[in-house]
Computed example of a mutant assay.
Amino acid sequence: MSELLNAGLLNIASLVVSAVVMIVGLVLWFFVNRASSRTSEQIELLEALLDQQKRQNALLRRLCEANEPEEKAELRVKADAKKDDEFVRLVAER
């Protein structure tokens, strides 16, 4: 009789262990799946933000170019030429 009782307890114990392993596995799967979906959402939001920033930069560049007067562009060219002259002055003579 005790042999039958021991065999039944072993079956029940293996069933309980299997159920506990399955429950732990499902809980782990839930948290990993949840973290993965949140990460995907964050990546999508960051990509959308990057796209908007690129658009804003392009718009700001166009606005700056449109508001830049012709005189400033000419002054910039003259300043660049003056810098070139100063560079020549820095060259040691032989």
Rank of each mutant, 00 (worst) to 15 (best):
A66W: 05
S40C: 04
L28P: 00
E70A: 10
L9T: 10
N11F: 01
A58G: 01
D80G: 12
A13M: 02
A13T: 11
V17L: 07
K83Y: 09
E41F: 05
V91A: 03
K78M: 12
R34D: 14
L60R: 12
A19H: 01
N67E: 09
S18Q: 14
K72M: 11
N11C: 08
A73N: 08
S18F: 13
F31D: 05
E41S: 13
R61E: 11
M1K: 06
L5K: 09
V24F: 03
V16R: 03
K82T: 05
L26S: 07
N57Y: 10
S37G: 01
G8F: 05
S2D: 15
L26C: 09
F31L: 10
T39V: 06
L59W: 11
E3G: 09
E3W: 07
A73L: 14
I12C: 05
W29L: 14
M1I: 10
N11P: 02
F87E: 13
R94Q: 13
D80S: 14
A92V: 08
A79Y: 09
E41G: 02
E70L: 06
S40D: 12
E44A: 15
D84H: 12
S2E: 15
E71L: 01
R55A: 14
E70Q: 12
P69Q: 00
L59H: 11
S36I: 09
L90E: 15
K72F: 09
V16C: 05
W29H: 11
A58M: 03
R89I: 01
R34V: 08
S2L: 14
L15R: 09
S14L: 14
E86N: 15
A35K: 07
A92I: 06
K78V: 06
S14W: 06
E3A: 07
R94S: 13
L63F: 09
S2C: 06
S37K: 08
L4W: 03
D80V: 04
L60H: 09
L4Y: 06
L63V: 07
E71A: 08
S37N: 04
L4P: 00
A79P: 01
L49Y: 07
F31W: 11
S2Y: 11
I12V: 14
A73Q: 13
L59F: 08
V16E: 13
E47T: 01
L60F: 08
R76P: 00
F87D: 10
E93P: 04
S37C: 02
E41T: 04
L46M: 07
N6L: 14
L10G: 01
F30M: 05
S2V: 12
A79K: 14
N33S: 15
E86R: 08
E68I: 02
E86M: 15
Q53S: 07
L4M: 06
A66C: 00
L75P: 01
R89G: 03
